[in-house]
Amino acid sequence: HDTTVHINGLRIEVHGASEEILKWIEEAARRGVEAEEIKRWVEEALK
């Protein structure tokens, strides 16, 4: 999927993410993980 995830006011563009990654992002956000940190993880995961 190409999608934009909104976390604590930060937009994260996610290209080619699976449902699993999207669920993981939402879970991390709920746990209060910094949005910048999530963004870094997602970029690494999608390389």
Rank of each mutant, 00 (worst) to 15 (best):
E44N: 10
E37F: 12
R11N: 12
I25T: 01
T3P: 08
E27A: 08
E27D: 15
R40G: 04
E20D: 12
I12Q: 02
E13T: 06
K23Y: 07
W24R: 01
S18P: 09
R30Y: 12
I25R: 00
E37V: 12
I38E: 00
E36S: 11
E27L: 05
N8K: 03
E36N: 10
R40M: 09
E27S: 05
E36D: 11
E13P: 10
E34T: 14
G9L: 02
E19Y: 12
D2I: 15
E44W: 11
E44H: 10
G16A: 07
A35M: 09
A17R: 03
A17V: 10
L22P: 00
A35N: 05
E26M: 10
E19H: 12
T3K: 09
K23R: 13
I7V: 12
E13S: 06
D2G: 15
E26L: 11
V33I: 10
T4Q: 10
E44F: 08
E43C: 03
L46E: 02
L46N: 05
E20L: 09
V5P: 04
A35C: 08
I38M: 03
V33P: 00
I7E: 04
W41E: 02
G16Y: 08
W41I: 10
E36R: 06
S18R: 05
E37R: 06
A28I: 03
I25S: 01
E19V: 12
E26S: 07
I25H: 00
V5D: 04
K47F: 07
T4G: 09
E19T: 11
L10T: 12
H6R: 05
G32F: 03
E37Y: 10
E20G: 08
R31D: 15
A17Y: 07
V14N: 02
D2N: 14
A29V: 15
R40V: 07
G16Q: 07
E27W: 05
E43I: 12
E26P: 00
L46G: 02
K23F: 07
K39T: 05
I7P: 03
V42Y: 04
E43P: 00
N8G: 14
E34S: 14
R30L: 15
V5Y: 06
E19D: 13
E43L: 10
K39F: 11
L10V: 15
E19N: 10
T4V: 15
E19A: 12
I12K: 01
A28S: 04
I38K: 00
H1V: 14
G32Q: 03
I12S: 02
E37N: 05
